[in-house]
């Protein structure tokens, strides 16, 4: 799978996350008056939106890696991270909205016309940021958290603006929020993919076998390679690969490969090695799988 396809997939899953979340969000909004306080109302919205968006985003890496185990563990961690991120996001977003909205409320009407939608968009951006951050926390990687924050903020802002301007252009449109959530999901997904690509200092390109041309980004501090579905670079379907065969550790700007004591060993440029600092263009052989190491 090429990087472009990867980004498209992240985006598609994001859109589906938005669609899935929308009916539940509408249900909570419908019962706004039933909540005793604004805080409880926002917590309920945060749980709802975080739960479904988190679950969907949780599946994304498993879907891309075509691993059922990763999908399952992804949903579980996605739900937990999503709920926490959703609650924080909605409460913080509401606080930002109240502050900005009240400020604009005391401005002239002409200013309000721009100020209110912008305030709303900032509210959306705040919760989008937390949703994106949850996406990153789930994968336990510092740079992914950063990716998620950026993607979520921009996605949320544009999603929020979309909702507000749909409302202006076609008042009473019941699908405005659906569009907003889809935009938010799409952008969290796409930005996650793009920025992940941008921030990745190195990658492994699989040169052969059934998953040929799949590119694995080395964004994490430690990347495990092996047949086990729990590894970051899963090699199910390749012969002579141990469950955890090889590890690549990021040390500042260097990537150091260490063989995890496998029977067949790890070959760098056709030489058997235990531990080596990787250079751009190195060819790595793990069992029957062969990778090209690329560094930016």
């Amino acid at each position: 799978m090429s990087l472009t396809t990867r980004i498209v997939f992240f985006g598609l899953i994001g859109i589906l996350a938005g669609i899935l979340t929308w009916p539940f969000a509408e249900l909570v909004l419908y019962y706004q008056t039933a909540f005793p306080t604004l805080l409880m109302f926002n917590i309920a919205l945060g749980i709802t939106v975080g739960l479904f968006m988190g679950a969907c985003f949780g599946t994304s890496e498993g879907i891309i890696a075509a691993s059922k185990v990763k999908i399952r563990t992804g949903i579980a961690s996605g739900v937990i991270a999503g709920i926490i991120g959703g609650i924080i996001g909605f409460v913080a977003g509401q606080a930002a909205l109240l502050f900005l909205g009240t400020t604009f409320f005391h401005s002239t009407y002409g200013f309000q016309k721009i100020g209110f939608p912008v305030s709303k968009a900032v509210g959306w951006a705040t919760f989008g940021m937390c949703a994106g951050m949850a996406h990153g926390i789930r994968s336990r990687s510092g740079s992914k958290i950063r990716n998620g924050i950026i993607g979520g903020f921009i996605g949320g802002f544009l999603g929020g603006l979309a909702v507000e301007y749909i409302k202006v252009l076609s008042p009473g449109n019941v699908y405005a929020r659906l569009v907003g959530l889809m935009v938010l999901g799409l952008l969290i997904g796409i930005f996650y993919g793009i920025i992940e690509n941008k921030l990745a200092k190195a990658s492994l390109l699989l040169l052969n076998g059934k998953c040929k041309d799949r590119e694995f980004l080395l964004t994490q501090r430690l990347t495990n390679i092996g047949r086990s579905p729990k590894t970051e670079v899963g090699l199910s379907g390749y012969n002579n690969v141990a469950d955890v065969h090889t590890m690549i550790k990021k040390e500042k700007d260097d990537f150091v490969l260490t063989d995890a004591g496998s029977k067949t060993g790890t070959l760098i440029n056709d030489d058997k090695t235990g531990r080596v600092k990787l250079k751009n263009g190195d060819v790595i052989r793990i069992g029957d799988a062969q990778f090209l190491f690329r560094k930016k």
């Binding site: 969000a25 509408e26 909570v28 909004l29 419908y30 019962y31 706004q32 604004l38 109302f41 926002n42 919205l45 909605f90 977003g93 509401q94 909205l97 109240l98 909205g101 009240t102 604009f104 409320f105 209110f116 305030s119 709303k120 509210g123 959306w124 919760f127 929020g160 909702v163 409302k167 019941v174 929020r177």
Partner: peptide, 12 residues
């Protein structure tokens, strides 16, 4: 009046 807008706006 005071400002009391919510992020998602009004329900249907």
């Amino acid at each position: 009046f005071y400002f009391s807008g919510t992020i998602f706006g009004f329900g249907q």
